[in-house]
Amino acid sequence: MTTILSRLFFFAVALFMALPLIVMVGVSINEKQTLAFPPQGFSLSWYGEIFTDDGWRNALFASLTLAALSAALALLVALPLAWFLWRRVAPWANIFQLLGVAPFTLPPVITALGLLTFWATTGFYGQPWTAVVSHAIFFVTLPLVTLSLGFSAIDRSLVEAAATMGAGDRVIFRTVVLPLILPYLVSGYAFAFVLSLNEYIVAYMTVGFTMETLPIKIFNALRYGYTPTMASVTVLFLAIAALVFGLIARFGDLPKLLGAMADER
């Protein structure tokens, strides 16, 4: 009885979460350029359109470039900071941890507006690279949290053992620490990458008038009428996210990663 109830509840939540996505998939395989559901006919041409149409292809390329670069920059900020906090006794340095977590915790419009005023004041407003920096700062939280977790998972006796065998700080970092935090490095990058790919408001406020990422393109396209391509892009992005998180789950400990993430707040 209770199992049936809980199954039913699970099913209802699953249905609620899946329904918009099912509609997206249905719409994306429509044969004609209408949003019809259930789909009329079957065609994958709307997926092809993402890559053949100049506008969509450029937007996809812009989004992928932005995500790849900003996630890398976020990692470059997070790694030394997380390492320092782990290696040294410096309680005052936790302020930087807090600063790293803040942009992601506050409503995004605040970070977006702060960066907009900053880029406008410094005269760089609209430059594509400002989006990379903006996203890196906005998403630095993610690698920072995964790396802090990764460092705290290192058994200190491994590091001490390396020291007794003659390894100094740099050698220890290269031969022991780096190999051990590699999974966390990868998942931190992946989290930042996927979220940057999907981010709208910060990108819109900083480079919205000069560069078109996919979310911006969809939003702009919404004003001129809906096309099935928007659905196919959504499905594609969902697939990318599912693939990335699936890989993290396959090669890492996702429950543990998420278990500790909420602790950081």
Binding site: V23, M24, L35, Y200, P215, L222, L238, A241
Partner: peptide
Amino acid sequence: VALLSILSLSEVMIGFAWST
């Protein structure tokens, strides 16, 4: 994995999906 994927989905896309 499913929840993370949906969570990371752009607000634009969620809006579009629901409006459809």
